[in-house]
């Protein structure tokens, strides 16, 4: 499995790791948007998760506690957004951006005492002999637990949205909140829960960065990952498996371009470094022009405020 000096198996294994934080955040945001809410605050929730997870893991000595803390912190941040947009009817775009600004500041404030500290290590899963299977072993059985968690999240969200009653209610709320309300569904409650789920996922994605991917805390360390996650949801046309595809495509091109550079390839580097963004756009254009338009449509009530009259 070698192309030139590139080992495809190694590439796939590392793109899975690189894509995991954005995949987690994207899958959470996908649920939020399926419920008809656009939360642009992913970056702010991710970095809050990153700092909370790090701080709790360092203080308690347990990465698992850190992860749980990050989930809760992300959900709480999202709750601010939920109250603003669902209870106080504030504009979603502006509230999301405000959340990002607040999250960046808040994380920096909390993280002041945690710069330059090494967090406790997260153990890798041990699959025993499975990890020695050629090709598959390296791709599938040599990762940390959260890579598998992210895959389970995709499968779980897909199953939940398409096969369960509560998933259908959520989609109904997102498609047309007035009809959903008329049918007796609690639009506001569904949406706030979805928003908190999105925050929890983003928080976990952030903690993956600060506890496993990089293991360190530095201010602004998410460096735009939340924005990429947002773009992926659109790329995925609000479908979980396509979010996985998008995250791995984006992560894959990122890893590939770094590998091409590292291989000493004579190719203009500035174009290589732009390629993840350009190819993502290109693939979406191809997908959106070849498919039926209906399949691409955003949830009908996306971004609109809902107020039950009377």
């Amino acid at each position: 499995m070698e192309i030139g000096s590139l080992n495809v198996v190694v590439l796939i294994a590392s793109l899975m790791v690189a894509a995991t934080p954005i995949l987690m955040a994207a899958i959470g945001e996908l649920v939020v948007e399926k419920a008809g809410v656009l939360n642009l605050g992913v970056e702010g929730m991710m970095i809050t998760g990153a700092v909370s997870g790090f701080a709790i893991a360092v203080t308690t000595g347990s990465p698992v506690m850190g992860m749980l803390g990050a989930i809760i912190a992300g959900a709480l941040m999202a709750l601010i957004f939920g109250i603003l947009t669902q209870v106080l009817m504030a504009n979603q775009v502006a509230s999301g951006l405000a959340l990002t600004l607040f999250g960046l500041g808040f994380s920096a404030l909390v993280g002041q005492g945690f710069v330059g500290i090494v967090p406790p290590r997260t153990a890798k899963l041990d699959f025993g002999p499975l990890s020695d299977i050629p090709v598959l072993g390296q791709i599938l059985f040599r990762h940390d637990a959260l890579v598998y968690v992210s895959l389970l999240m995709v499968a779980g969200v897909w199953y939940w949205l398409t096969r369960t009653r509560s998933g259908r209610i959520l989609r109904a709320v997102g498609e047309n909140h007035d009809s959903a309300h008329a049918l007796g569904y609690k639009v506001r409650r569904v949406r706030i829960l979805a928003i908190m789920f999105g925050g929890a996922c983003a928080g976990l994605g952030g903690a993956y960065l600060s506890l496993i991917r990089v293991p360190q805390w530095t201010e602004g360390m998410t460096a735009g990952a939340g924005w990429i996650a947002l773009a992926l949801v659109v790329f995925a046309s609000w479908r979980p498996w396509r979010a996985l595809l998008g995250a791995y495509l984006f992560g894959g091109i990122m890893v590939l371009q770094l590998n091409l550079q590292a291989a000493g390839l004579r190719f203009p580097v500035e174009y290589l470094s732009m390629s993840p963004y350009l190819i993502t756009i290109l693939v979406l254009v191809i997908m959106s022009s070849s498919r039926a338009r209906a399949s691409l449509a955003a949830p009908g009530s996306l971004g609109q405020s809902f107020h039950a009259a009377g």
Binding site: S5, N7, V10, L11, S14, A18, P21, L209, R213, V214, Q216, T218, G220, M221, T222, A223, G224, A225, M254, V255, L258, N259, Q261, A262, A263, G264, V269, E270, S273
Partner: peptide, 27 residues
């Protein structure tokens, strides 16, 4: 031999980690 990866940023920990991995994967 020297292998160089241009990150086009002064600080993006995740990207720097991926760059280090790419370099190690390239030997």
């Amino acid at each position: 031999e020297m292998r160089v990866v241009w990150a086009f940023t002064w600080g993006d920990p995740a990207l720097e980690a991926a760059a280090a991995e790419a370099l190690i994967d390239q030997g």
